[in-house]
């Protein structure tokens, strides 16, 4: 398989499948574009003409309202036509394969598919089989990647903290199942973050994560010590209990971010979370929207970042 499946021969973005392998100049270009689009959509008139006449299909095999909505809004603000498809297991149980689904929708002359799927590697699979003019934008595949979330996290950090090379970033929570953590680590590493930490009990740390460039901490106090940025991950309660954690209460006790624990962080540290939050689990309720928290800004930036990716891929802009 072509390792640069997502890049054109001259290094431009053709699909966005993962942040792995994307180098600093390209990441910076995307973030700059997002900044430009963020500024351009601050007024009452939020619609740009960049993707007029283009068709974007949101193809979601996993239920999601928030992420799908931000992609939809991003495409609409660029004047693209948007189709939302929530595909359940039913179409595959009728004997239609994933490839059939893709080919059928391609025949409707879509320009881009925004795809979320529960299987790691699904976005690569679609990109390998997509027709030449059709772009794939990964909106989350299994535990593998969630590159636009990674980009919006990078965007948030750059906007509020500046130079990555000075920053210590702690990612806290369910690293094992998290595509967000993996995308964040790739992006932070490419942009030269000083230190990337993953903080969780050993049952939630995947084997060999150090090879991605992250330092492993099993103690929250040590993991937060001197950090500039803390990214909390959502704990999927239903799959945690018994198998990975004794209880949510115990997780909160040992790994939940509380007002008291803020003292470990740098005084000007920021708090991020991809949402939706479990109040009282990953984070104490009143911290979520407190002065350190950028959780709501992340949602807003998410739209600009997704617009930027769509514009760069479909608009052919440099």
């Amino acid at each position: 398989m072509n390792p640069n499946l997502q890049l054109t021969a001259d290094g431009r973005l053709r699909h966005l499948l993962t942040l792995e392998g994307l180098e600093a100049p390209l990441l910076t270009q995307i973030l700059d574009k997002a900044e430009e689009l963020d500024a351009a959509t601050q007024g009452p008139e939020k619609k740009l003409e960049l993707l007029r006449g283009r068709t974007v299909i949101n193809l979601f095999f996993e239920a999601s309202t928030r992420t799908r909505t931000t992609f939809e809004l991003a495409a609409k603000r660029l004047s693209a036509d948007v189709l939302n498809l929530q595909v359940s297991a039913s179409s595959t149980s009728k004997g239609e394969t994933l490839l059939d689904t893709l080919k059928t929708l391609e025949a409707m002359q879509a320009d881009m598919f925004v795809i979320r799927h529960e299987a790691s590697g699904a976005a690569h699979f679609f990109a390998e089989h997509a027709a030449p003019g059709v772009a794939i934008l990964n909106a989350g595949d299994g535990r593998h990647a969630h590159p636009t979330q990674g980009l919006l996290d990078l965007y948030t950090i750059r906007k509020h903290k500046g130079d990555f090379r000075q920053l210590t970033v702690a990612i806290v929570g369910d690293i094992l199942h998290s595509r967000v953590a993996r995308s964040d680590i790739h992006g932070l590493r490419a942009l030269g973050a000083k230190e990337i930490r993953v903080v969780a009990p050993p049952t939630l740390i995947p084997a060999g994560i150090e090879a991605m460039g992250a330092k492993v901490y099993h103690s929250l106090a040590a993991g937060l010590d001197g950090a500039d940025v803390v990214i909390l991950l959502r704990l999927q309660k239903e799959r945690m209990l018994g198998a990975f954690l004794p209880s949510l209460g115990e997780f909160h006790r040992d790994f939940g971010l509380t007002r008291e624990r803020l003292r470990h962080l740098k005084p000007d540290a920021i708090i991020m979370h991809p949402g939706p939050i479990n109040r009282g689990v990953e984070i104490e309720g009143d911290l979520a929207y407190g002065e350190r928290s950028l959780i709501l800004q992340q949602v807003q930036y998410g739209i600009s970042v997704r617009m930027a990716v769509m514009a760069l891929i479909l608009g052919g802009e440099a």
Binding site: S120, G121, G142, H144, P206, A207, A211, M212
Partner: peptide, 12 residues
């Protein structure tokens, strides 16, 4: 179970 599986997010 190892660095490659972890990076790809595949069940180990």
């Amino acid at each position: 179970e190892g660095p490659v599986g972890t990076r790809l997010g595949l069940s180990p």
